[in-house]
Design a protein around this nucleic acid. Sequence first.
DNA 1: ATATAAGGTGTGAAAATTACACCGTTAAAT
DNA 2: ATTTAACGGTGTAATTTTCACACCTTATAT
Lengths: 247, 247
Amino acid sequence: MPVKHIKLINYKLNYNVILEDKLPTFESVFSIDCLIFGFEAGELKILLIERNDEPFKDWFALPGDIVKQDESLDDAADRILYELTGLRDLQMKQFHTFGEVNRHPQGRVITVGYYALIRINGQKELRPVTQYARKAVWHPVNSLPKLAFDHTEIFNNGFSKIRRRLNHQPIAFDLLPEKFTLTQLQGLYEAILNKKLDKRNFRKKMLSYGFLKELVEKQKGVSYRAAKLYKFDRRKYAKIFQNELTA
Amino acid sequence: MPVKHIKLINYKLNYNVILEDKLPTFESVFSIDCLIFGFEAGELKILLIERNDEPFKDWFALPGDIVKQDESLDDAADRILYELTGLRDLQMKQFHTFGEVNRHPQGRVITVGYYALIRINGQKELRPVTQYARKAVWHPVNSLPKLAFDHTEIFNNGFSKIRRRLNHQPIAFDLLPEKFTLTQLQGLYEAILNKKLDKRNFRKKMLSYGFLKELVEKQKGVSYRAAKLYKFDRRKYAKIFQNELTA
DNA sequence: ATATAAGGTGTGAAAATTACACCGTTAAAT
DNA sequence: ATTTAACGGTGTAATTTTCACACCTTATAT
């Protein structure tokens, strides 16, 4: 839900007026929008900012901004995400570029969508560096509010790509703590794919890949039998993947 | 091989001089580059233009140009391909956006890569509408010359994506004539994947999908037993695909 | 001790994948 | 008429992968 709903209902109507009155327009720029997924309390979430400026002041939006003249897209993505959320060093990847003529009210803006999957770390604070984002928050993907601009479309496009990628690449591990249980892993797959999976088949298959390292350590602080912890072994994965490529 | 090799060896050295002397520079623009695949004489080919202007005059390049202020990326892709090659109505799709700072000598150019797979039609002439391309030619992917700008990288990126897509989507049929034999289809798969496939398994599998329509008509003009012709049945495919999605 | 909550395990049926070789048909060349 | 070159077309068995399915075990809290 938009943060200030009543005000915003009138927003579209006053659009052109507002723009002509107050906002700068520009000829043609690139921007980046970031789709950052996290996993917390069994739920898949994305990172949104609350906008502090027109247009779409007070709306939720994907963290995004304009690419500078002298930075590559990849560099811009890193900088922008940092400025808007305080998060750094994420290794985002681009998934699609959105170039409809009127997708942005202030001018021609072509935006490149980037995504990353990360661990939500209770410690790490989300604090925007610029004033342009009032704050950054994690929001469950299952109940997203209306987003500014065409960000809902961008989200849908990126999410469906990630869903497909999940079956081919080990992207899920980026969302989990370094040490995790198989049940946690399964819960994550279920959250992304939005369907139940069979426990025995899931475990059999995951272990059969051979890139999970079983740890001696066990889960702690649970009021039931503690589960074994596992790690994702990047080295083993690289070997397996390499073989697949050369086969 | 570049068209005028000797001249071009010195090109990079003289680069800045040339630019400062003659060429316009610009702040920041979007462009489109098109990767158009065709299949002819058992070989996979892409469409290249021979550049008529600096920079990279006389080099081969992917058909590409700058997006106008008032056209969407998809529309721009259609227009640009038409202007440079005379081809129309292709239904291209974007595959990646290239945004390194110095990828273009004249200024900051971020380019969106689009691809399409089409039938090479002996009848249809390739004739560029603008002078900026001297001509457009089909070139086998297995012996590409050095390309202008970072177009070799763009080609590699797009080609590897198409290769992967081949196993999930029926994109091959766009490259064949409407009526084709199973041997032709197999040859195409082999050309794209760059490996031999087993004839019996290939036919079994293709037919098992249920989206090929066997025609009464047979191949003509061959000096050996004529093969059955098949058509790709989009309606059946849509049904099958729909079921997969809803399952 | 007992209740609770999740951990952890195996088998059989069905489907998909892989490897593999020969005869048939046609047209052109002799 | 015969031969030759070139491709068309077909089936089976072994292996691997996928899928459906249910119960006992273990740790903790009461």
